[in-house]
Design a protein around this nucleic acid. Structure first.
Length: 281
DNA sequence: AGTTTGACCCGGACGC
DNA sequence: TGCGTCCGGGTCAAAC
């Protein structure tokens, strides 16, 4: 389940391995991954393109070629593998053949991942197009201040959990990390954002940074050395405090699980007191 | 008209 | 073993 730290790990490793390579051909084994162009155009436009750089915005990987830009979102279980002429496994859906014989394979058990291809090589322009234009500030962005967040949420009537999951305001926190941030902040996930103090917001931002940087550091240390067939994906489950846990690591009380914004939400009723009664959970 | 919710995509895991 | 249900990130349509 890649979240922002895992995506950043994948970006770093892929960048060191495949920037400079030229695509010879593309094989599409499952086409619904590709969202904004036909399979035919996807292949044609990528053929003979040399990879210049790999960037990232939120959880989107940005593959910058000489004439086109490809976006890739890993969603739940997407991952990239580097192989050469081995039999395809069941869940390898898109294969990029480089001119040196190396193959970049997109593997996705759930088939939830998405790819977009744009006929521009301008990294600035791509930020103005859907879906990247919907990606909000990352927690590490210095522009993400308590004042900014407060201004964005002043008229909203929703739970803090749903706000943390809303990528258009703060990008990078997924369901798991949102629970962790709220636990560290001692804030009940159903708390209405309207009644949060500026100090609450400040603490939430600080803990978002703490959780993500810890995960980035952790993901970076656990990714296996990246050889031909190694998979590129981070591991982060091991340091979780509340998500999918049975007992609170602080007070040992049983962890509660509820549904909020359609997502499984774990929290400690003892450590995360409700500040209000939210009317729209 | 802007904000919020819910269906959808998919297959592994799990329960009966 | 088999079948039904659950789960989830982001998008889009529907509902508020």
């Amino acid at each position: 389940m890649p979240e922002l730290p895992e995506v950043e790990t994948v970006r770093t490793i892929l960048k060191s391995q495949i920037v400079g390579k030229t695509i010879k051909d593309v094989l599409i084994r499952y086409g619904k991954i590709i969202k904004n162009v036909t399979e035919q155009n996807f292949v044609t436009l990528l053929r003979n393109e040399r990879l210049i750089d790999i960037g990232r915005k939120g959880k989107y990987l940005i593959f910058i070629f000489e004439n086109v830009i490809m976006l890739s979102h890993l969603r739940m279980e997407g991952k990239y593998l580097l192989k050469s002429a081995e039999p395809y496994s069941k869940h390898e859906h898109i294969v990029f053949f480089f001119s040196d014989g190396i193959e970049l394979r997109y593997h996705d058990t759930r088939k939830f991942g998405t790819m977009y291809l744009f006929e521009t090589a301008d990294p600035v322009r791509i930020m103005q197009l859907t879906p990247l234009n919907r990606v909000g500030l990352e927690p590490f962005d210095e522009l993400l201040t308590p004042e900014y967040v407060t201004s964005r949420i002043s008229k909203l009537n929703r739970s803090i959990k749903s706000l943390l999951l809303d990528q258009t305001i703060i990008s990078g926190l997924g369901n798991i990390y949102a629970d962790e941030v709220l636990f560290l902040s001692k804030i009940h996930p159903a708390t209405n954002v309207k009644i949060l103090s500026k100090e609450n917001i400040k603490v939430l931002i600080e803990n978002s940074r703490a959780v993500l940087s810890k995960a980035i550091a952790y993901g970076g240390t656990t990714v296996r050395s990246f050889k031909a067939s190694d998979e590129v994906s981070g591991r982060f489950q091991n340091f979780l405090l509340v998500h999918t846990k049975d007992k609170c690591p602080v007070c040992n009380q049983v962890i509660s699980k509820i549904r909020l914004s359609g997502r499984g939400t774990y929290f400690c009723e003892n450590c995360q007191k409700r500040l209000d009664i939210t009317n729209t959970p």
